Simulated scan of single mutants.
Amino acid sequence: MFKKLLAMTFITTLLLTAPKGTYAATENYQIDRTALDKGLIAVNYTPDTDTKTIVRISKGNDNYDYTLTNGAHYPLQRGNGTYSVLIAQLMSDNKYKVVSKESIELKLDNENAVFVQSIPLINWNSNTKAVVQMNKLTNAAMTDMEKTAAIYAYITKNIQYDYEKAQSVKAGYIPNLDAIYDSSKGICYDYAALFAAMARSQNIPTRLMMGYEASAPTTYHAWNQVFLNGQWVTIDTTYDAVRVQNGENTPMIKNAADYTITQVY
Rank of each mutant, 00 (worst) to 15 (best):
Y66F: 12
Y66N: 07
T67A: 15
T67P: 07
T67W: 15
L68R: 14
T69R: 15
T69W: 15
T69V: 14
T69D: 11
T69P: 00
N70T: 05
A72S: 15
H73I: 05
Y74I: 00
Y74S: 02
Y74N: 04
Y74V: 00
P75Y: 03
L76V: 02
L76C: 13
Q77T: 00
Q77G: 06
Q77H: 05
Q77A: 07
G79D: 05
G79V: 08
G79N: 05
N80A: 03
N80L: 09
N80E: 00
G81V: 03
G81N: 03
T82S: 15
Y83N: 00
Y83E: 01
Y83D: 01
Y83W: 02
S84A: 09
V85E: 06
V85G: 01
L86E: 06
I87N: 07
A88H: 08
A88I: 03
A88E: 05
A88R: 05
Q89M: 01
Q89E: 04
L90D: 09
L90I: 05
L90H: 07
M91W: 06
S92P: 03
S92F: 15
S92R: 12
S92K: 10
S92H: 12
D93V: 07
N94C: 10
N94K: 15
K95T: 11
K95V: 08
Y96L: 09
K97T: 11
V98A: 10
V98T: 13
V98D: 10
V99T: 10
V99A: 11
S100G: 10
S100R: 02
S100Q: 08
K101I: 07
K101F: 04
K101N: 09
K101T: 08
K101E: 04
K101A: 10
E102D: 09
S103T: 07
I104P: 04
I104M: 02
E105Y: 07
E105G: 01
L106Q: 04
L106D: 01
L106W: 04
K107P: 01
K107E: 05
L108W: 04
L108H: 01
L108P: 04
L108A: 02
L108N: 07
L108E: 04
L108F: 07
D109Q: 14
D109P: 06
D109K: 14
N110K: 11
N110V: 06
N110L: 09
E111R: 13
E111L: 05
E111C: 13
E111G: 12
E111A: 12
N112W: 12
N112T: 05
N112A: 09
A113F: 00
A113H: 07
A113R: 09
V114W: 01
F115Y: 15
F115P: 06
V116E: 03
Q117Y: 00
Q117G: 00
Q117E: 02
S118A: 11
S118E: 03
S118I: 01
I119E: 03
P120G: 08
P120M: 03
L121S: 13
L121D: 06
L121H: 10
N123W: 09
N123I: 06
N123F: 14
N123A: 12
W124N: 04
W124A: 06
W124Y: 15
W124M: 01
N125K: 15
N125T: 02
N125C: 15
S126M: 11
S126E: 15
N127K: 08
N127E: 04
N127M: 12
T128N: 13
T128W: 08
T128S: 14
